[in-house]
Computed example of a mutant assay.
Amino acid sequence: MSALKEQLTAAMKDAMRAKEKARLGVFRMALAAIKQIEVDERIDPDDARVLALLDKLIKQRKDSATQYRDANRPELAEIEEAEIVVLQEFLPTQLTDAEIDALIDDAMAQTGASGMQDMGKVMGILKPQLQGRADMGAASGKVRAKLA
């Protein structure tokens, strides 16, 4: 079992003991998503896979919160944002803009990227380094700007 899954399970048990229904729901949802991967793919996901899943769940919550705000439903958006905060507790510390720029420059140097046709190569190197530590959309925009 991955260490991240163990942390989620322990946090779920703590939320049960403390009778924190909102947090408990978030943990159950995340563990259900991990269980879905285990059943569908017949694998025990490692920390990298669990981290990618948490990243995906956070992105889904951000999209939902945006849609709720656009539909004039701030109370539902606040629920989604609270779930994001709970999920972010399990992500590694976020990288600063300077650190992201340094990683992008390093990846571009490794691949010898010179134009937009090399975007995939650069992102292929960056994705494992940035997963869960930075917004991939923002990083992609920075790479695009540097290659243009």
Rank of each mutant, 00 (worst) to 15 (best):
V86N: 01
D135N: 13
Q117S: 14
M116P: 01
V122Q: 09
T96L: 05
A82Y: 02
A33I: 13
E78P: 00
A32F: 08
A77P: 04
E75G: 03
I104K: 11
D46I: 05
A15V: 07
T96H: 06
Q94V: 12
R49M: 09
S114D: 02
M136S: 06
I100N: 09
G141C: 03
R17M: 08
A65E: 12
A138M: 07
S2K: 10
I84V: 08
K5T: 04
K142D: 03
Q7W: 06
Q67I: 04
G25C: 14
E38S: 05
M16F: 07
R17I: 10
A15G: 05
G120M: 15
L76M: 13
L147W: 10
D70K: 13
M119R: 10
E75A: 14
E80F: 02
V86Y: 10
K19R: 07
P128E: 06
L147G: 02
V85L: 13
E89H: 06
D118H: 09
E89C: 02
R28E: 09
A113T: 10
K127F: 06
K19V: 05
D118F: 06
E89K: 11
D55V: 02
T93C: 09
Q36P: 00
D105P: 00
D14R: 13
K21N: 04
Q88L: 07
M29Q: 12
L31E: 13
E89L: 07
P45Y: 06
V122N: 07
P45M: 06
A148S: 15
A30L: 08
Q94C: 08
A33Y: 15
R23A: 03
E81N: 00
I34E: 08
Q60K: 09
T93A: 15
M16Y: 05
D63A: 05
E83V: 00
K56Q: 12
K59Y: 15
P45Q: 08
D46Q: 05
K21Q: 06
A107T: 14
Q129C: 03
Q60D: 12
V39K: 13
A22C: 00
K59P: 00
L31D: 09
K146L: 15
E83R: 02
G137F: 14
A10N: 11
Q94P: 01
L126G: 00
A139F: 13
V143C: 04
A33E: 15
K21E: 10
L87C: 03
R73T: 14
M29W: 07
L4N: 08
A134Q: 08
T66Y: 01
G112I: 09
Q131A: 07
D105Q: 03
Q88E: 15
L87T: 04
M29C: 05
A98K: 07
A109E: 10
D105C: 00
I58K: 04
A138P: 00
K13D: 06
V26R: 01
P92S: 13
P74I: 03
A32L: 10
A65V: 01
M1N: 02
Q36E: 04
N72E: 14
K146S: 12
G137P: 02
M108F: 02
L76G: 08
A71Y: 09
A3E: 14
Y68W: 12
S2P: 04
D44F: 11
P45K: 04
K19G: 00
R28N: 11
